[in-house]
Design a protein around this nucleic acid. Structure first.
Lengths: 186, 186
DNA sequence: ACTACTACTAGTATCTGGTCTTAAAAATGG
DNA sequence: CCATTTTTAAGACCAGATACTAGTAGTAGT
C-alpha cells in the first residue's frame, strides 16, 4: 500500500496545484479516502488549508499587480548599462509572449525590449522615441532567451536626436535589428 | 447621527477597498463601533465577508492570468476589419502604459497596437512581421484614445511580403505613423 | 411628556472549514 | 502471527462569519 499512499499524495499535490480552492472534503471524495487521511497528507506535505491557500493566491496577485506594472516598465532585464553609450538586456520568451499556434514571439515584444533598452540608455529626464526602423531576421520561439545589445551611434545629431542601434541575439543568431531615433528633453 | 452613519460607511467602503483582507473585528476597532454595527453596514452596503472578498481577489487574479494572456494577444480593440484590405483598432492609454513622470505613453504600446492590427489584418495561417518603420509624431498622454487605421498598400510584393501602412490618431491629430512589411505563411 | 423611529449594541444558535489530540481499526510486511 | 504502517473515527476547540432576537440610547413630532 505504500505506493498507493505515495500515488495519492502525488495526485493530491497536483490537484491542489491546479485548483487551490478545493476543500478537504472535496479532496476526500475525489480520492476516496476519509477527510482525516487528507489532513494527514496535507500535514506530511506541509500544504496549508484552503483558506490559507486562497489567501496566498490573493495576496500574490496583489503583489503581482505591482510587479506587472513594474515589468511593463521595461520589457527584459537590463544586465549592463553605460549611459549614452551602450546597454544590454535579456528577455526570456514565455508563453504569454508567443502566438499560440506557432509558438513564435509576437513582434512587439522584441520591439518593446529594444525600445525600453533605448529609453533606459538615454541619460536625460525623459526620453521619447521619435522614429524606429526594425527588422525581424529570424523568428524567436518560446523559451528562447533574447539578448539585446544597444549601442549609441550618434549622441546628438543635427536635430538633437540620439541614434541608437540595437542588435538582438538568440545564442549566436541575430534575430532582430533596430535603429531608434530618440528624443531627449531636459 | 445620520451624517455619522453615512460617514462611517464611506470610510468602511474605502477601507475595505484598499484592504479587502480586513476582518469585521479589525474594522469595528478602527471605526470604534461594535462588530454588529459593522455587520449591519456590510449588509446594507452588500459587502461580502472577508473570506469571500479574499476569494474574489484570488479568483479574479486566476481569471486575470488568462485574461492577461488574451489581452496581450492584441493590444487595442479591433472595431473594423476587411481582411487583406484595411482595419481599425482603438487603444485606450491607461496608467500602466505610461511613463510615471511624464504620463506619456511608452512607445512600444503604440507599436504593439499597430503591429497586432497588421497581424490581424493578414488573411493567412500565420503572419509575422519582417520589417517595420515607425514614426512618433506627437506624444500620447494618459487617458487618450488612440485610433489606429491600417491599410494594405501592396498585398504581395516581389518578395511575397505584404506592405501595410498604419496611421494612429488621437482625435484629429496624427500621432503615429508606421509601415509594416508582413511575412505570410500557408 | 409620550410615542415612534432610527441607530446601535448584545447575546445566542448555527455554519464552514478547518486544527489538534487521542484512540481504535484495518492493511501490510516480514 | 505479530509489529508496524496506514487509515479512520471521535471530541474539543477556533476564526470569522450568518441569522435572528432583543434591548438600549437618542432624536423628532405632536
Amino acid at each position: 500500500m505504500r505506493l498507493k499512499k505515495k500515488e495519492r499524495q502525488d495526485i493530491l499535490i497536483k490537484t491542489i496545484e491546479e485548483n487551490p480552492f478545493i476543500t478537504d472534503e472535496e479532496l476526500s471524495k475525489n480520492l476516496c479516502v476519509s477527510i482525516q487521511t487528507i489532513r494527514l497528507d496535507r500535514l506530511e506535505l506541509a500544504i496549508p488549508e484552503v483558506r490559507e491557500r486562497i489567501k496566498n493566491v490573493a495576496s500574490q496577485s496583489y503583489d503581482d499587480s505591482v510587479r506587472t506594472l513594474a515589468l511593463e516598465e521595461i520589457i527584459g532585464e537590463i544586465i549592463d548599462i553605460n549611459l549614452d553609450q551602450s546597454a544590454i538586456s535579456i528577455f526570456e520568451v514565455a508563453n504569454e509572449h508567443v502566438f499560440k499556434r506557432s509558438l513564435i514571439a509576437r513582434g512587439h515584444y522584441l520591439f518593446a525590449q529594444a525600445n525600453s533598452l533605448c529609453v533606459a540608455l538615454i541619460n536625460a529626464e525623459t526620453a521619447l522615441t521619435a522614429r524606429a526602423n526594425v527588422q525581424y531576421i529570424r523568428p524567436v520561439k518560446i523559451n528562447e532567451r533574447v539578448v539585446a545589445k544597444a549601442k549609441v551611434l550618434e549622441k546628438e545629431n543635427t536635430k538633437g536626436r540620439t541614434i541608437v542601434e540595437v542588435e538582438s541575439y538568440v545564442g549566436n543568431d541575430l534575430v532582430f535589428l533596430g535603429e531608434f531615433q530618440m528624443h531627449r528633453s531636459n
